[in-house]
Design a protein around this nucleic acid. Sequence first.
DNA 1: CCATCCGA
DNA 2: TCGGATGGG
Length: 326
Amino acid sequence: MGNSALRQLASLEEISFDDIEGSIVAIDAHNWLYRYLTTTVKWTRDEVYTTEDGTEVANLVGVVQGLPKFFEHDLTPVFVFDGQVTDLKSDEIESRREQREKLEDQLEDAREEGDAIEVARLEAHTQRLTPVIQETTRELLEFLDVPIVEAPFEGEAQAAHMARTGAVDYAGTEDYDALLLGAPKTLRQLTSKGDPELMDFDATLGEHDITWEQLVDIAILCGTDFNDGISGVGPKTALKGVKEHGDLFGFLEERDEYIESADQIRAMFLDPEVTDDYEFDTEMNPDIDAAREYVTEEWKVHADEVERGFERIEESITQTGLDQWS
DNA sequence: CCATCCGA
DNA sequence: TCGGATGGG
């Protein structure tokens, strides 16, 4: 479980929205949507966002409800979408697919037994971001003139890169991988209620007196999206071991362990494939009526589910004057 | 996030 | 006995 390990090493600081007013944030679109769908929309009451042919577009509700949070705090989101899937990650995706199949079996059992709570819980876990969800999200964002960047591979890596080059002020994701990717400052908890959390890269390295490379090695020892990690090794042991030996290899040797393609995994974080060939305009000029029509007419999402969201978008935009022409 | 387990 | 890792809810 790489995530919980990194959480313990990360330098995290609670901040307020006032501190980051006016900032540009590169949002890992996949992560943001996934968070939103599992926590807020929760796939309950699917009649609200399911078309006659059974296509579920809960994401449209999620986007409309989630965007006001940015605008009301005068934040400009830049949504970064995933591109091609990388080889190493394919294994992970494959294993997730297997896991999902397992979950789907359990789901079937729960349905048969009429266990409604278990059904709801499992449903939340078996959902995934379908191509329709990705595509309709893009289109809705385009109506609202929200900046979009297409990553060549991992959206997360591209977002971190944009933060590193200063193209944006922050990366925005719940994922601790942003640290491994070297995003200088990452905002977390942008979707949930309450205050956001700032994760600081340099402070993290400084607190433990380690290099970026060593941080990545520690994460690899604990397990990442790309590898399982060493059993019995958590953040403390890995930190100590890497500092003692300088990197993960000495540590592995000592414990007579081996990690498949450790070098490639390192490179996924230290030198991922990203691009500087993109552009976005932070001067937003949304067509809210067209967006509303797209969601409620074209996709037949119940109007009352999104009305408040659209109102909030309208209000926040006139207030902050993001859009000076309409 | 907490309870339980494991190993030094 | 305790710090750290794990796993389930």
